[in-house]
Design a protein around this nucleic acid. Sequence first.
DNA 1: CGACTATTTGATAGGACTCAACCTCCGTGG
DNA 2: CCACGGAGGTTGAGTCCTATCAAATAGTCG
Lengths: 252, 252
Amino acid sequence: MALPLIRKLENYVHLADIEKRSLMQADFQIREVDARVDIIREHQEVEGATLVLEGFACRYKLLPDGRRQMLGYMLPGDMCDPRIFLLDRMDHSIATISRAKIAVWPRKSVLGLTSLYPRITRAFWWCALVDEGIAREWLVSLGQRTALERLAHLICELHHRLKAVDLVSGNGFDFPVTQAELGDTLGLSAVHVNRTLQDMRRERLVRLAGRRLTVLNHEALSTIAMFNPDYLRLNAKMRSARPAAVRQETAE
Amino acid sequence: MALPLIRKLENYVHLADIEKRSLMQADFQIREVDARVDIIREHQEVEGATLVLEGFACRYKLLPDGRRQMLGYMLPGDMCDPRIFLLDRMDHSIATISRAKIAVWPRKSVLGLTSLYPRITRAFWWCALVDEGIAREWLVSLGQRTALERLAHLICELHHRLKAVDLVSGNGFDFPVTQAELGDTLGLSAVHVNRTLQDMRRERLVRLAGRRLTVLNHEALSTIAMFNPDYLRLNAKMRSARPAAVRQETAE
DNA sequence: CGACTATTTGATAGGACTCAACCTCCGTGG
DNA sequence: CCACGGAGGTTGAGTCCTATCAAATAGTCG
C-alpha cells in the first residue's frame, strides 16, 4: 500500500485511476523497522528507492571522527529522488528515527512505472525539487539563524509537511526525535537544544512531552523563524495543472 | 560558445559530435556581467537556464533582515538544473561574484535539446546530482565543522572543481571571493574569516593575495577539512559508460 | 590623487559547547 | 509488584569559539 505516497504526489499533480492503481500494485518490499536503525549506509550500493510509509526517517552523513549531520527528514509519503539510480553508491545514509514502515522500491519497478506514466515522473520531479528547496532552507538555518530561530524553523517545516499528509491533529503531531538528534539536525549540542526548547516552553510557543509536539502559538513561532511556507509548494497542483510549457517536460 | 559546459558534461558522459555541435549552436543569450550583479532574483519568473561561461557566480538566499547565506558557487561550465522549469518562480537568487560571462538558455531550447539527445539529459542529471552532493557537504560544514575546517573544505572543493575545467595552474587559481562573501558562505563573520585565513597562511597551507589563491600544502589542507573528493564524481564517466542497468534510464 | 571597497587589528561580549552530575521515565525481569 | 538498568532529559559551572564594534591600513579604479 503506497497510500501516503499517493497522497503526497497528488499535492503536485492529478493522478488518473490507472496511475494510482499502478502505484498501489507496484512491488514494494515493505519492512517494519525499529527506531534508530540504518536502512541504507553511505557507500552501499543503491538497489531501490527508499520510501517511508509510516514513522520518521532521516538522511545523515558522518564525519570520520563521529560528528553527525542530518541532511533532511523523511516523513510518511516521502521518497528519495529516483535519479539516485544513476549513482551506483549512496553518498549518505538513511536511518529510521522512530519505529517505521519502510518500502524499498526496486529500481526496475520504478523505472518501469516512470517510463509508462510521465505524470508520475513529473510528480517525482516535484518531490525532488521540494526536497532541494528544503535543503536550501536548512543551509540558511545552519549558516545564519540562531539556535532559537533554527529550532522554530524546523518545527514550522515539520508542522506544514505533516499537515500535508494528515498527520497533524489540533496543531499537535507525533515527534519522536530526541534532543540529541535535534542537535545533529540543527548543528547544536544536545544541551543547548534542551535549553532552547525550554525557552520555547517558557514563552508558550510549543508543548513537547511524551513524544508529542503541539504548536501553541503558530503565529509567534513563524515570526521567530521568519518562516514562509512557499518553498514547500504544498498547493502547487493548481499551478502545475497548467498550460503548454509544462506538457513539454512530460513528453521527454 | 558553450565550451566549458561541454567540457563539464564530458566528465559524466561521452558526447557524440552531433551532440556537441548542437550544444555549441544552441541559442544562448550571452551577456557580460559586472561583479556583484544579480542575474535572477528570488520570486522572479524562470525563463531560462542560467549557465556560467566565465567567472564566478553564486546562488544565495536573503533573510528579511538582510542576513545572507550562499547556497553554492557556480563556476565556468556550471548550469542550473533544467528541472527548474517545472517551477514558475525562483526560490533563491543567483548573482555574479566576479565579472562574468553568463548565458541564459531559453526554456524551449533546453527542452528541445534534451528531448532530442537523452545522453545530454543524462549528463544534466549527473550535474544536478553532483550539485546536490555539494549542498549536502555544505550542510555538514555549516552544521559540524569548525571555522578552519569549513574554510579548508571550501578551498578543497573549489580547487577540485576548477581543476576539472582546467582553471588551475600550479595549484593556484583565480579567487575573486571577498572575505565578506566567504563569511556569508561559511556562516561566519568577515572578521573571523580574516583571522582564519591568517591562521592558514601562518601554517603555510595557502597563499591568498591579489584575487589569486594558491594551495601550498594540499595534503595538510585535505586532512584538516577531512576532504574526500568522491562526492564531486569527477571521474564518473568510466562508471556511467557501463553496462545494462544504466542504459535503462536513458531509454526513459 | 581621492573615494571606495576590502583587509587587518584590537578589545570586548556573548552564544553555544563541554563536562559532570542528577533526575525521570520506561521496559524488563525477578 | 517492585527493583534494576538504560536511555533520554535537565541543571549548573566554567570555557571557548566566534560575533560585534570600532578604527586603522591597504588596494583599486576612474
